[in-house]
């Protein structure tokens, strides 16, 4: 009997194989990760893509319109495939597992990094090295631009959170006062 976890794992493996076959796994992985976080952060997008009243073709069309020009064709196709299969609700879990397995294949752990501004390649590279040194693990950084943290960076590696955001500093100040 196939459980939800098995199904999610099956989709994650399939997407991972397809992305690897296309030869741009890192790029697709990042785009999928960002789309996953965007989906989690947007109630309207999530309800639209999971609405059974909207035909699958229409939902796929929405995804393609949304990502067209902003993500690679591979990423758009993979997301469209999952949405067309009626698994939009599982999309964040599928992508999380995909990212985790991709990192695991490279003997890395995923570091989810939230920054108020986009990081340069150099910053990402130095941050990856810094996080690897701090945690003692080889990390694969996934950056999400999140203006709600006002400034600075928040990194989460497994259960460890290193919060250097302005919003966190303000919260600390509020507690102190």
């Amino acid at each position: 009997m196939t459980t939800d976890h098995d199904r999610i794992a099956g989709y994650a493996d399939a997407l991972l194989v397809l992305a690897r076959a296309e030869g741009n796994l890192d790029e697709v992985e990042d785009e999928l990760f960002r789309f996953s976080r965007a989906l989690e952060g947007s109630d309207s997008l999530r309800s639209t893509l999971t609405d059974p009243g909207i035909p699958a073709a229409k939902r796929q069309s929405i995804v393609e319109d949304l990502l067209g020009g902003r993500a690679s064709n591979t990423t758009t196709s993979l997301i469209s495939f999952v949405v067309g299969s009626g698994r939009s609700r599982d999309l964040p879990a599928i992508i999380a597992l995909l990212v985790e397995r991709a990192a695991s294949e490279k003997s890395k752990v995923v570091a989810e990094v939230r920054s108020a501004i986009a990081l340069t390649d150099d910053q990402q590279s130095r941050l990856t090295a810094a996080l690897s040194q701090a945690t003692g693990k080889s990390v694969a950084v996934k950056v999400i631009v999140d203006p709600s943290i006002l400034g600075g960076v928040v990194a989460q590696v497994g259960d460890t959170v290193i919060d250097g955001s302005v919003v966190h500093r303000l919260a600390q100040l509020k507690t102190l006062l």
């Binding site: 040194q133 701090a134 400034g151 290193i162």
Partner: peptide
């Protein structure tokens, strides 16, 4: 510029951490 400086400072601070 400030945002950039905050990110740089964060990277420096994380780089100085050990065994988190």
């Amino acid at each position: 510029e400030t945002q950039y400086a905050l990110v740089e400072r964060y990277i420096d601070q994380v780089g100085r951490m050990q065994g988190v």
